[in-house]
Design a protein around this nucleic acid. Structure first.
Lengths: 238, 238
DNA sequence: ACCTGAACACCGTTCAAGT
DNA sequence: ACCTGAACACCGTTCAAGT
């Protein structure tokens, strides 16, 4: 997970606009790494500065020398999750396969840490890794012939889908136990909701992998359709 | 906003599986309503039991007679937001227009309260309103000829998209100021990311309405395409 | 440069006791 | 049935002072 990061050393855009100043206070990465371990053990709601300080065998106040406040630490954690992810998206296959691998990659990255998606939501980072990922996606769709507005629009759409999906997936995995699931199932056979009743067996399906693929396919079908419409228009003009 | 709820009184599935017991301790709705007001004023992070108690001119401990814990209150708030929303989706138009209106309705519902989307995320409620909404969507797509698996899959996909979108929209509106936006713009002209550089003008576009419509259209295009493929298959078989 | 000690102004939650 | 008083075990953050 962290071997990749060594290999990219020297690219230096790592700490945002402050990059390239000096070799970064060594301690910062250690804190973030320990914070991520703690996240996996206790979850986002129980991740406190004091608990983290305990782990690092330091006073809580010490953390405020390295981070302005808790939010800045959380932002750094979100960045580190993305950085640690498998960022060599396969170049093989047509663009639909590449886009699919891209979306799956983001989902797996967020799934790799407890509450990873929730942590990531609302973190508007623009560090090297975010831009790198975006560049890969954008160039794939651009080379497939899609115009700028579509590339950007599709990028956001896929990102929002993956984010919403993974937030709900992780919430389900941690908060919804078998009891709760059974309760949901019991509510359904209500004559007031005939269509839901009809769909009962499908609504009880919690195969997140299959569910994710269905939505991703729908988005790609939409892109294919958009591409076809664009070709037809161009055909009429020329 | 709350007149609608009066009109539906007597349907009684309101408090989940405990419904139909007795006329519900009057106080509960008042607490939730005040909590929503507080949410709009201070945001989700600053919504505390103690502050809410102050507003109701009561001790914080008193809230624990009405709600098991804070999470139960948050769940009730999420339910109330959905309940207060405009739930008579227009019956006019073809199914694509109805699905569009449906998704827009959910987005507007979540936007109606500060951090509404974040509050809603991970709240697996199955109250009357959730089921009612789902029923409307499912029947629309069912009547359009889509098979059960597609109806359910498309429902989840649209939900995840709307949720992810609105979370990021609200986070942007509250946390990202002009300064931050300018900083994001400055990072882009990097020769390392040629495609992003090319898309610069489009990446700086923060028109969320337009962005939302693009993604929604993409999903509907995908559904139309899926429908066409299904018709072709059926044509070959018969 | 980096950390401690101690404090400030808060949290969510419990529970005996009141009415 | 509904609420108070008081406590418990925590929070994030600041800041003088240490090394």
């Amino acid at each position: 997970v962290s071997r990749k990061r060594e290999a990219r050393k020297g690219k230096m855009a790592r700490d945002g606009e402050r990059a390239g100043r000096k070799p970064a206070p060594l301690q910062r990465e250690k804190i973030v790494q320990e914070a991520l371990n703690l996240l996996n053990e206790v979850g986002l709601d129980s991740l406190t500065m004091r608990r983290l300080a305990d782990r690092l065998e330091v006073q809580a106040a010490a953390l405020y020398w390295h981070f302005k406040n808790k939010q800045e630490l959380l932002d750094a954690m979100a960045g580190a999750i993305l950085a640690a992810s498998n960022d060599d998206i396969p170049e093989a296959g047509d663009w639909t396969q590449r886009v699919q691998a891209f979306a799956q990659g983001i989902r797996q990255t967020l799934l790799a840490y407890r509450d990873g998606a929730k942590l990531f939501a609302g973190t508007y980072t623009a560090d090297y890794h975010t831009l790198h990922y975006t560049e890969i996606f954008a160039s794939t769709l651009s080379q497939a012939g899609y115009p700028p507005a579509s590339v950007v629009g599709a990028g956001w759409t896929i990102f929002y889908y993956v984010l919403g999906f993974t937030i709900e997936e992780q919430a389900f995995l941690t908060y919804v136990d078998a009891d709760h699931r059974a309760k949901l199932a019991n509510v359904l056979p209500d004559p007031q909701f005939p269509t839901l009743n009809m769909l009962r067996s499908h609504l009880g399906n919690w195969d997140f992998d299959a569910r994710f693929r269905y939505g991703l396919n729908l988005l790609i079908k939409g892109l294919l359709q958009e591409g076809k419409e664009r070709m037809e228009e161009e055909g009429q003009i020329h």
